[in-house]
Simulated scan of single mutants.
Amino acid sequence: MTIYPASHERYESEPSLADLRGDGARMAPHWVTPAAPAPDPVSPALIHGVVVPAASARLIDATAEYGG
């Protein structure tokens, strides 16, 4: 495991967005996961018994304004 030393100054203030992005870029190779296999398709006729509360349906319906 590689250890990246940090300066004392870095702990005295909040990290910047650039610092956080750099940290994430350095950590990314350590968190590689295998791709999950795609699920088998299901016919819409087999999907039944799903109940969506009215408030959730309104929320989803309203998101169309933001997506496109």
Rank of each mutant, 00 (worst) to 15 (best):
T2V: 14
T2L: 07
T2M: 04
I3A: 06
Y4I: 09
Y4M: 03
Y4W: 12
P5G: 05
A6W: 04
A6P: 00
A6Y: 07
S7W: 02
S7D: 07
S7M: 03
S7C: 03
S7A: 14
H8K: 13
H8I: 10
H8D: 14
H8R: 12
H8C: 01
H8A: 15
E9D: 15
E9K: 14
E9S: 10
E9T: 09
E9W: 12
E9C: 05
R10P: 00
R10T: 09
E12P: 00
E12W: 03
E12S: 14
S13H: 08
S13G: 00
S13R: 07
E14K: 10
E14S: 10
P15K: 10
P15E: 04
P15L: 13
P15N: 13
P15C: 04
S16Y: 01
S16I: 01
L17W: 09
L17V: 13
L17R: 13
A18M: 01
A18W: 00
D19T: 06
D19I: 03
D19A: 04
L20I: 15
L20W: 09
R21E: 14
R21L: 11
R21D: 06
D23A: 15
D23I: 06
G24V: 04
A25P: 00
A25S: 12
R26E: 12
R26M: 12
R26F: 04
R26A: 14
M27N: 06
M27T: 04
A28C: 04
A28T: 07
P29M: 05
H30Q: 09
H30G: 07
W31N: 08
W31V: 11
V32K: 15
T33W: 00
P34N: 11
P34H: 06
P34G: 08
P34C: 00
A35T: 05
A35W: 01
A35L: 08
A35M: 11
A36D: 05
A36W: 02
P37S: 08
P37T: 10
P37L: 03
A38D: 11
A38N: 03
A38T: 09
P39E: 09
D40I: 00
D40M: 05
D40K: 12
D40Q: 11
D40C: 00
P41N: 05
P41S: 10
S43Q: 10
P44M: 08
P44Y: 08
P44I: 05
A45F: 11
A45M: 09
A45Q: 14
A45T: 15
L46P: 00
L46S: 12
L46T: 05
I47V: 15
I47P: 01
H48I: 01
H48K: 14
H48L: 02
G49T: 03
G49K: 02
G49Y: 03
G49E: 02
V50G: 00
V50H: 02
P53G: 11
P53T: 06
P53R: 09
P53V: 03
A55P: 00
S56R: 11
S56Q: 10
S56W: 04
S56L: 14
S56F: 06
A57F: 11
L59T: 07
L59A: 15
I60T: 12
I60R: 15
I60W: 12
I60G: 08
A62S: 15
A62C: 04
T63Q: 13
T63K: 05
A64N: 09
A64W: 04
A64T: 13
E65K: 06
E65N: 04
E65L: 12
Y66I: 10
Y66D: 12
Y66P: 00
G67K: 10
